[in-house]
Design a protein around this nucleic acid. Structure first.
Length: 513
RNA sequence: GGUCCGUUCGUCUAGCCCGGUCCAGGACAUCUCCCUUUCACGGAGGAAACAGGGGUUCAAAUCCCCUACGGACUACCA
């Protein structure tokens, strides 16, 4: 095969894109770029009734955030435009008719009620999965059973009809899946799927085959849920006399509680977002969290996602997008369903955050502060905050969540910490400490520590005793970087103010000796 | 129910195609210890898996068969 690799990601704008979809897009992208090929986005909006406003735009925005950039798509255009199936409507009808002409498809005039009736009858007769197929089509209203003039008349009088695939009665259909090997299904298991709906729109089956052919797609990389309908697609390619693309069906992303494949409807119920970006349902107004807003770095999210079903075969775990492109291959994609591991996603995030410089992290923190409506300190101060915290955060939002005291004065003091460290001796120390602080020569962490320790030993107190007390007074919480580093950053004036506040606000214990 | 696909530590997985080097390797999580004023980071170490049963073979996680379990699909949805 010397032709250029071309793949497509074909989401349906029926809602937000979820992680499984992002992974499918990612693998398509990695595969295309690895081979120097094109990655196309095609919107499969043939079901007009399920369209969700904003979904397409959301999908496009999500992929951008992830760093998955399309070569062609509805927002970019390209040689095979339009890339929205609803805008390609006339194309499909012609192809469906071509198939009828070739004897691979037929018109069917049955009403939904008539089909339902057929199913009921079949069920009553003991058939567990009644189908519109080689057997039942003989008894239905279609161009196979009706006289030609009758068919003609019905078509001319604009009677609603669909075009169905004429699936051969007895035939073993085989195809090779790049991930699963040879798969074979007997045609008797397939039903005569509708190709063109009565509203003139194609179904997925027709549209995807026609478009993949027209867009010269070389590899169809999609979720495993499509595996059962692939034989039908094979039949379609054959019926048209077209060359088939290579198929690769990806293992599904499973929910952590073994309840099957992860779905959009899972929203936030597993404690991790299932969407890349926050999504607000246009109808219910329900908000679902997104990775971005939760404080994930896109590169961490992508690295994590890439490993859900693929691995390089080496011990390397950290890959940039460029490295992923370099190393990705379908051969190394697993076959079995993959469960989501929130802890690992956090590990990746933490890792990537720590690798970033304070300068790089700065905009994220500023954005977060803006969102929270907190005061935004000057850049040097912020960078120092980031430095002090970056070993301790899991999410980008932790810079503010875990250490609000760098931005706001504490207004509460952790009760447990009070109980442990707010002793009369310690308070006495704090008062003296604060007094000595006023006269300190150079306000830096080292000097502060020296002073604190010296004063402590003068009073017969250990460093371990007094530091939590200072921490309590200044931050109100137990968590954080070294106290003296905090003091240094806060500055003399603020430190003194906070100690004073603490002395006023935290009640003196009634100590029993 | 039927069809198809799958099954290695709790999780993601390496190894399977080309049987021996695997009393199964890595990562996350977990446990212990060290470092340490807190929380982390870091370092050292530990526990932890070939779904089950039959074959084939001198030898099977690796090849074959069966069973069990899980999943997907089964629409004029994608």
């Amino acid at each position: 095969m010397t032709e250029k690799v071309r793949v497509r990601f074909a989401p349906s704008p029926t809602g937000p894109l979820h992680v499984g979809g992002v992974r499918t897009a990612l693998y398509n992208y990695l595969f295309a770029k690895h081979h120097g090929g094109d990655f196309i986005i095609r919107i499969e909006d043939t079901d007009q009734t399920r369209l969700v406003p904003g979904a397409e735009e959301y999908i496009l925005r999500s992929l951008e955030w992830c760093g998955i950039h399309a070569d062609y798509g509805p927002h970019i255009g390209g040689p095979d435009a339009p890339y929205r199936q609803s805008e390609r409507k006339p194309i499909y009808k012609a192809y469906a008719e071509e198939l009828v002409a070739k004897g691979h498809a037929y018109y069917a005039f049955d009403t939904p009620e008539q089909i339902e009736e057929m199913r009921e009858k079949a069920k009553a007769a003991g058939n567990k999965s009644p189908q519109y197929n080689a057997i039942t089509r003989q008894y239905m209203l279609n161009s196979l059973t009706l006289p030609a003039e009758e068919v003609q008349k019905r078509l001319e009088s604009n009677e609603p009809y669909v075009i169905r695939m004429l699936v051969p009665r007895k035939e073993e259909i085989r195809f090779e899946d790049k991930i699963r090997g040879w798969v074979s299904v007997h045609s008797s298991q397939l039903d005569d799927k509708v190709l063109l709906k009565s509203d003139g729109m194609p179904t997925y089956h027709l549209a995807n085959v026609v478009d993949d052919h027209l867009m010269k797609i070389t590899h169809v990389i999609r979720g495993e849920e499509w595996l059962p309908s692939t034989p039908l697609h094979v039949l379609l390619y054959r019926g048209f006399g077209w060359e088939m693309p290579v198929f690769a069906h990806l293992p599904l992303l499973l929910s952590p509680d073994d309840s099957g494949k992860l779905s959009k409807r899972d929203g936030d119920r597993y404690g991790f977002p299932v969407f890349p970006l926050e999504w607000v349902d246009p109808i219910t107004g329900n908000k679902s969290s997104g990775y971005k807003e939760s404080g994930y770095l896109p590169e961490a999210f992508i690295n994590f996602l890439a490993f859900l079903g693929w691995n390089p075969g080496t011990h390397q775990e950290v890959f940039s997008m460029q490295e992923l492109i370099q190393h990705f291959s379908l051969e190394r994609v697993g076959k079995s369903g993959v469960k989501f591991d929130k802890k690992k996603s956090i590990w990746y995030n933490q890792y990537y955050i720590r690798k970033k410089s304070p300068e790089e992290l700065l905009p994220y923190v500023v954005q977060d502060l803006e969102k929270k409506g907190w005061p935004i300190p000057a850049a040097p101060y912020l960078k120092r905050v980031i430095e002090l915290l970056s070993d301790r955060v899991e999410y980008l939002t932790d810079f503010t969540n875990l250490a609000p005291y760098f931005f706001l004065r504490p207004n509460t003091y952790e009760p447990e910490l009070i109980e442990k460290s707010w002793k009369t001796q310690n308070i006495a120390f704090l008062i003296d400490f604060s007094r000595q602080l006023q006269g300190i020569q150079e306000w830096n962490s080292k000097n502060l520590e020296m002073l604190g320790k010296q004063l402590a030993s003068e009073k017969g107190l250990s460093a371990g005793k007094i530091m939590p007390t200072i921490r309590l007074a200044v931050t109100g919480v137990t968590f954080g970087p070294g106290v003296f580093d905090i003091l240094e950053l806060l500055g003399k004036e603020e430190t003194l103010w906070r100690i004073d506040q603490a002395l006023q606000k935290i009640p003196v214990p009634t100590e029993k000796l």
